[in-house]
Design a binder for these strands. Structure first.
Length: 201
DNA sequence: GTAAGGATGCGCT
DNA sequence: GCGCATCCTTACG
């Protein structure tokens, strides 16, 4: 991707209603820079988590040390540790003080492939970034990226490169069966036809 | 202080 | 399809 033809996504975008942000993040490019080397992937699979009333949202039981960043201004990175070994990457949305975010579940690898292969210890393209914990490992994202401002950081940002997306798939969120009726909400969105979705819709 | 469980991925069957 | 790895966060006492 030619970064001269790309432009960065700023706060006004992330402050929109979370569903709009989730849908419009599809097709955009997540770029991670470490030691001057870029790794980039197109966002093809996301989920939204909306406020304290959403039982699947980490903020469902109020503000804690862990979910603190979800209450920050839109455009910050919320990275959390899960299952004793994995990290997941989210982008904070809505107004400051309202805890909501979009979880990025899968990317289509675009550049920096060799470094991603090293970090993932595989050369199978579909195993590099197709999964929320796979993509954080491929991009070298861990808890030190929690709280980064994606609208200004030199190491992590979201860019628009003119990609025209087709049909958007939607389905229930993955791994939130404990959330009762909220587990049925169709708050997962994906790019139809992508070979890099984290799971079938 | 202590215990229970999770926005997952991998390997084996 | 199933079990397991592995440890942080939270809730409760």
């Amino acid at each position: 991707m030619n970064m001269n033809d790309a432009h960065r996504t700023h706060s006004a975008f992330f402050e929109q209603a979370t569903e709009a942000v989730a849908r419009d993040l599809l097709g955009k490019v997540l770029v991670r820079t470490v030691d001057g080397v870029d790794c980039a992937g197109r966002i093809v699979d996301v989920e939204m988590y909306l406020g304290e009333g959403d039982r699947a949202c980490h903020a469902a039981r109020g503000r804690t040390q862990r979910n603190e960043v979800m209450f920050w201004r839109a455009g910050h990175a919320y990275v959390y540790f899960v299952y004793g070994m994995h990290y997941c990457f989210n982008i904070v949305t809505e107004k400051e003080g309202f805890p909501a975010a979009v979880l990025v579940r899968a990317l289509e690898p675009l550049s920096g492939i060799e470094l991603m292969e090293q970090r993932r210890r595989t050369q199978k393209r579909e195993l590099l970034t197709s999964g929320p914990a796979r993509l954080t490992q491929a991009l070298g994202i861990d808890r030190t990226s929690n709280g980064i401002d994606l609208t200004s950081s030199a190491e992590l940002g979201v860019f628009e490169d003119g990609f025209k997306k087709g049909k958007i798939l939607k389905g229930p969120r993955i791994g939130v069966d404990y959330a009762g009726k909220d587990a049925k909400l169709l708050w997962r969105f994906g790019l139809s036809g992508s070979a890099f979705l984290s799971k079938k819709f």
